[in-house]
């Protein structure tokens, strides 16, 4: 279908036959700019199937939870009772009564600090482990054990260490998301082709130049895979950590809603968390695709 569209544009734009190579180059641009039909078609093919699935799920849910003694609220009840939360994400009625978007932003701020630290420390440690055989032998077993510790198991210790809930939550994010960054960076560094190392040796690049100019760009695809896994884990961890530490984040909102039996609010919050996590994942993936566009295209 999209091929058909290209042909049409080509005929309209270039009635006289041109050199084949040029025609291909131009039509690629033409399609990108002036072909609304192809764009609409592509949008429809990506958006319609999930929309259909969601509608079907809502209908099933509605039917399943409609009986008077159902334990969970049906979608219609969620819509009616939590309408405020759905329609006004940015309301602000005082310190504990704010819109869900604000709560998500507060959680995101913690994630940004914790995950940012994890990214910096993780890449540095990963580079060390990937570069030095002795660092790998010493550190890798320790990492492999520590990474299996569930995020919340760190929380009591960090509460004891920091004596405050906010840095503890940030630490939990840090310690949860750092392992995939370390491990993927190490694999990426270990896989740097010997030729690139030889180029660096012939040019006599020093350690720092090698790290910045060869190692990070060469390992970038691996690093971003690690970062993507890491951001997913940190979003998982923040919600759980906030349930226990309190504050105004989205995690605590769920716990609070549970304690006051506002089930529709919890369901809306889940949707917010899911969408935010999805956006985070796509954001890191997009940054990764942009940064590594040179490395991955062999």
């Amino acid at each position: 279908m999209s091929i058909q569209a290209i042909e049409d544009t080509k005929v309209k734009a270039f009635p006289t036959p041109a050199k084949p190579a040029e025609v291909i180059a131009f039509t690629a641009k033409v399609r990108r700019r002036f072909d609304p039909a192809a764009i609409t078609g592509k949008l429809a093919s990506t958006l319609v199937p999930p929309a259909v699935v969601i509608v079907v799920m809502l209908v099933i849910w509605q039917i399943a939870c409609s009986s008077p003694n159902a334990s969970l609220p049906p979608p219609s009840q969620v819509w009616n009772e939590a309408y405020d939360l759905i329609a006004h994400p940015f309301f602000d009625y005082g310190p504990q009564d704010i819109g869900l978007a604000w709560r998500v932003l507060i959680s995101l701020q913690r994630v940004a600090i914790g995950f940012g630290l994890a990214a910096i420390v993780g890449v540095a440690l990963g580079a060390l482990v990937g570069q030095s055989i002795w660092a790998m032998r010493g550190l890798d077993p320790v990492f492999q054990i520590l990474r299996t510790v569930p995020p919340l198991a760190w929380l009591p210790l960090s509460l004891a260490a920091f004596r405050d809930s906010s840095p503890s939550a940030i630490f939990v994010i840090f310690i949860t998301s750092i392992w995939p960054v370390i491990i993927n960076t190490a694999v990426g560094v270990r896989n740097i082709p010997e030729d690139y190392r030889n180029v660096a040796r012939i040019l006599r690049l020093n350690q720092l130049e090698f790290f910045v100019k060869i190692m990070v760009p060469a390992a970038a695809p691996y690093i971003f895979t690690g970062l993507r896994i890491g951001i997913g884990l940190s979003w998982l961890a923040i919600v759980a950590a906030e349930m226990l530490t309190g504050g105004v984040g989205i995690g605590f909102f769920i716990w609070d809603a549970w304690n006051s039996s506002r089930l529709p609010d919890i369901i809306v919050a889940l949707a917010y968390i899911g969408v935010t996590g999805f956006c985070l994942d796509r954001l890191v993936a997009a940054v990764g695709a942009f940064v590594t566009r040179g490395t991955t295209a062999k």
Binding site: N198, P217, G294
Partner: peptide, 27 residues
Amino acid sequence: SPGPERAVVFQNHSLLPWLTVYENINL
């Protein structure tokens, strides 16, 4: 030790794929 006064042209070119032709030489 290796050094730029003995430059090597490698069999598989060994250009850095994330740099342009100009940047590769500029490095």
